[in-house]
Every structure is written in structure tokens, then in C-alpha cells.
Computed example of a mutant assay.
Amino acid sequence: MNIKFSIITCTFNAENYLQNCINSVKMQGYTNFEYILIDGGSKDRTLSIIEHNLDVINKYVSEPDNGIYNAWNKGLKLARGEWIMFLGADDELLPNTLSKYHNFLIHKDESILDYVSGKVIFESVLGKKRRTIGKLWRWDIFRKYMNVAHVASLHSSKFFEKYGYFNESFKIVGDYELLLRAGGNLQAAFVDSELALMRDGGVSNNPKKVFIETFKAKRLQKSRSYILCVYDLIIAWVKFSLKFLK
């Protein structure tokens, strides 16, 4: 079995980290993948970097977009892989990530799996490892908050056929809302290994907006009652405040 992966990276003025991201894809030992770059009309050296890496980049688009989920949806329309991965322009795959996924999947019944995730190293902008995130998906936890690491995780192409593309009204937690659509029926698996590196920064570091959008996603997909969503919101804010005060 030779599984094909589609890797989608969205960029906008990403010259500082993009080459490292591309290099991490180039260095994968597993080669049956396509790499898709969706640029939002960058004004820095992003396009030049893309054009100098067409040996690994199969398809790219550069035009204004309406945010990350609009860009990811553009990438989905171009993707032809059986499994689809989203990798930020400032993120990196760790060595042999695709091989690890391949070796994991060939021992599973792919026809019933929707989603596969692993562990992600969360690193500061100065390159210091802060923590490792990502756990086994469990509906009793996921319905409250996102406990899986979405960076470099895999989505079956059939999942999008069944549940649709990203909801572009979300700006931060559209990945969470997407997976919530399957509810407790999501067929998820977990690779107990560090697979990618994620850097601190970006809109996801705005806790107020994250908490509010998470509330909206849960209510939209009815994963929790209104009262329980309010409770989850309060608990999340209290935990964040206590951590910040330490």
C-alpha cells in the first residue's frame, strides 16, 4: 500500500519561517505526497521563496483571501491525496513524520478512519521548547475543548465529502468546529509520537477570542447545552487567569 498525502500550507508575508517549513517537507523520507501552497497575496519575499522551491511544491496560488479557513478551503479544492494535512507557514514537520503516519495507517482499516493526530512540540519564538501538546481524541473531552493537536494532523479526504469544508465565519477555531460536526461518531486514531513543531504567536494566542469562538462552535454543533457552554467558558477563563498570575 502506498498512501498519498496532501500537505497544505497557507502563507501571508511569511518570509521569516517559510523556508524552514518547506525544508521540513523536503526532508521527509516518504515521497508519495503533494505539497500545496496558498498565499494570500504577500508583499514580502514569500513568492520568491515559493518559486525557488518548485521542486517540492506541486501547486500554488497567490491572491488575496478572507483568512486562513478561506485559504485552506482553496487548498482543499486542489488536493488529490487520500489523507490531507494542514501545516502552518511557521510550523515544521519533524523527520520521518509521513513515514510514521504511513506505517501507522497500513495497520489500520483506513476506510473507517476520519482523523489521525499525534503530538506537537510547542516552541517559543526564541526557539525554546515550552511543552508538548496533543492527546488521544475522546468525545467526552473533545465536546468541551479541543484536546488534539491539529497542526500536521491527518483528515481523510472522505471526511470533507461527508461533512463539508471549513466554516469561514470562524477566524481561530474553524478546525475545532469542523471536527465537532461528526460529534461522537468521529473515527479518530492517535500516533503516540512527536510529529511536528509549532511556534508561539498568531491569532490563536488571543485567549479571549479563542474562548468566545470555542463557545460559538460548541453551540453551533450542539455538542453542549448553553448552560454547560457558559460553564466551560468560565472555567477556561479562570484557569487561564490563574496561570497568567503565576
Rank of each mutant, 00 (worst) to 15 (best):
M1W: 07
N2Q: 14
I3A: 05
F5G: 03
S6G: 13
S6C: 14
I7D: 02
T9S: 12
T11G: 01
T11I: 09
F12M: 00
F12R: 00
F12W: 04
A14Y: 03
Y17G: 03
I22V: 13
V25W: 02
Q28H: 06
G29Y: 07
G29F: 10
T31S: 11
F33P: 06
E34H: 07
I36F: 14
D39H: 01
G41Q: 03
S42G: 11
K43R: 13
D44W: 07
L47Q: 09
S48D: 11
E51M: 12
E51T: 08
H52T: 15
N53P: 00
V56P: 00
I57G: 02
Y60D: 02
E63T: 11
P64M: 09
P64I: 10
D65C: 10
Y69R: 02
N70T: 04
A71M: 05
N73W: 08
L78C: 06
R80Q: 15
F86P: 01
A89D: 09
D90R: 13
D91C: 15
L94R: 05
N96A: 11
T97M: 08
T97R: 05
L98S: 06
S99G: 08
H102Y: 15
H102E: 07
F104H: 12
F104L: 10
I106H: 05
D109P: 14
E110H: 15
E110P: 12
E110R: 15
S111G: 09
S111E: 09
L113K: 11
D114Q: 05
V116A: 14
V116D: 06
G118I: 07
K119V: 09
V125Y: 01
G127L: 08
K129V: 14
T132A: 10
G134R: 01
K135Y: 11
K135T: 15
K135H: 14
L136C: 04
L136N: 11
W139E: 00
D140N: 14
I141T: 10
F142A: 03
R143E: 04
Y145M: 07
Y145H: 07
Y145G: 06
M146Q: 11
N147Q: 05
V148F: 08
A149M: 08
H150W: 10
V151K: 02
L154E: 12
L154F: 14
L154W: 14
S156H: 12
K158T: 08
K158W: 13
F159Q: 02
F159P: 00
F159W: 08
E161L: 15
K162P: 08
Y163M: 07
G164D: 01
Y165S: 01
E168P: 00
S169Y: 00
K171Y: 03
I172K: 05
V173M: 04
L178R: 11
L179M: 06
L179P: 00
L180M: 13
L180Q: 01
G184C: 09
N185T: 08
Q187Y: 12
Q187C: 13
A188G: 04
A189G: 09
A189I: 12
F190R: 13
V191S: 02
S193L: 10
A196N: 03
L197W: 07
D200R: 09
G202V: 09
K208T: 05
K209L: 14
F211R: 04
I212V: 15
E213A: 03
E213D: 03
T214R: 03
F215Y: 14
R219H: 10
L220Y: 07
Q221D: 01
S223W: 07
R224G: 01
R224Q: 10
I227M: 05
C229L: 04
Y231T: 13
D232P: 01
L233Y: 08
I234H: 04
A236F: 03
W237F: 10
L242K: 14
